[in-house]
Computed example of a mutant assay.
Amino acid sequence: MTLSATAQDTYTIPAGLTPLATWRDGYSAADSLKFRQAYNDNTLTAGEDDGAYAIKHLSEVLPAALVHRQGPVAILEENIMPEIGEVVATTDLGTMTLKETMADERSRMEAIVVVHEGKIVF
């Protein structure tokens, strides 16, 4: 997906902020240690590299517990609405669709699931 030249020129990845695709296959031991040591109360909301690590490794940085379910897994039906990906918003990245935002290496968005009336729609 190609973005307009205006959006690409207006907002670049800030110095020191790594494109998320860098860690698509995992984090090095050195990065893991660095991010765990850097964790603080603002990490998850600041959108920095340590936050990208923390959101994927919450049990390493916050107290966590396994909660076992009772009964079978609930399977959600799908009714995919591709038009959701065409919703346009204006952010620091510029004005672009949700699909463009997800494809843009400057974005900190890694995934989204939209559930409507008990069905996965996007």
Rank of each mutant, 00 (worst) to 15 (best):
Ala52Lys: 03
Ala38Gly: 00
Gly47Ile: 06
Tyr39Leu: 12
Ala52Tyr: 14
Thr45Phe: 12
Gln37Asn: 15
Ala38Pro: 01
Asp49Gln: 04
Ser28Gln: 10
Asp25Val: 03
Ala46Lys: 08
Arg36Pro: 00
Gln37Glu: 15
Phe35Asp: 03
Arg24Gln: 14
Ala54Gly: 08
Ala38Thr: 04
Ala46Asn: 11
Arg36Met: 14
Gly47Cys: 07
Thr45Ala: 09
Asp50Gln: 15
Thr22Ala: 01
Phe35Gln: 04
Ile55His: 03
Asp41Pro: 00
Ile55Arg: 10
Ser32Lys: 13
Tyr27Glu: 04
Asp49Thr: 00
Arg24Ile: 11
Asp49Ile: 00
Gly26Trp: 12
Ala46Tyr: 05
Ala21Pro: 00
Gln37Val: 08
Ala21Trp: 03
Leu44Ser: 02
Ala21Phe: 04
Asp50Cys: 12
Thr45Val: 14
Asp50His: 12
Gly47Val: 08
Ala54Val: 03
Ala54Gln: 06
Ala30Met: 12
Asn40Trp: 06
Arg24His: 11
Asp31Gly: 01
Gly51Leu: 04
Arg24Ala: 15
Thr22Asp: 00
Asp25Glu: 14
Lys56Ala: 13
Asn40His: 13
Phe35Ala: 03
Ala30Lys: 13
Lys34Val: 00
Lys34Phe: 07
Arg36Ala: 10
Ala54Met: 05
Thr22Met: 04
Gln37Phe: 06
Ile55Trp: 05
Leu33Lys: 14
Lys56Gln: 15
Ala30Ile: 14
Lys34Pro: 00
Thr43Tyr: 10
Leu44Ile: 05
His57Ala: 01
Ala52Val: 09
His57Glu: 01
Arg36Gln: 14
Arg24Pro: 00
Arg24Met: 09
Phe35Gly: 01
Trp23Arg: 02
Phe35Lys: 07
Lys34Met: 12
Arg24Val: 12
His57Ile: 02
Ala46Glu: 12
Lys34Ala: 14
Phe35Trp: 14
Asp50Met: 13
Trp23Thr: 03
Asp49His: 02
Tyr27Val: 07
Asp41Met: 09
Ala29Tyr: 02
His57Val: 01
Gly47Asn: 05
Ile55Gln: 09
Ala52Glu: 07
Phe35Val: 06
Ala52Asn: 05
Asn40Gln: 09
Ala38Asn: 04
Thr22Asn: 01
Leu44Ala: 01
Thr22Glu: 06
Arg36Trp: 05
Arg36Val: 06
Asp25Ser: 15
Lys34Ile: 03
Ser28Leu: 13
Trp23Leu: 04
Tyr53His: 04
Arg36Glu: 14
Leu44Phe: 03
Gly26Cys: 08
Asp50Trp: 11
Glu48Trp: 10
Leu44Gln: 00
Ile55Ala: 06
Asn40Thr: 10
Gln37Met: 13
Arg36Asp: 04
Asp41Glu: 13
Asp50Phe: 10
Arg36Lys: 15
Lys56Ser: 09
Gly26Ser: 10
Tyr27Gly: 06
Tyr27Cys: 09
Ala52Leu: 08
Gln37Ser: 13
Ser32Pro: 04
Asp31Asn: 08
Lys34His: 12
His57Cys: 05
Gly47Thr: 03
Asn42Pro: 00
Ala52Ser: 11
Trp23Pro: 07
Leu44Met: 02
Lys56His: 11
Gly51Asp: 05
Ala38Lys: 10
Tyr39Asp: 08
Ala46His: 07
Asp41Ile: 09
Tyr39Lys: 08
Ala21Cys: 03
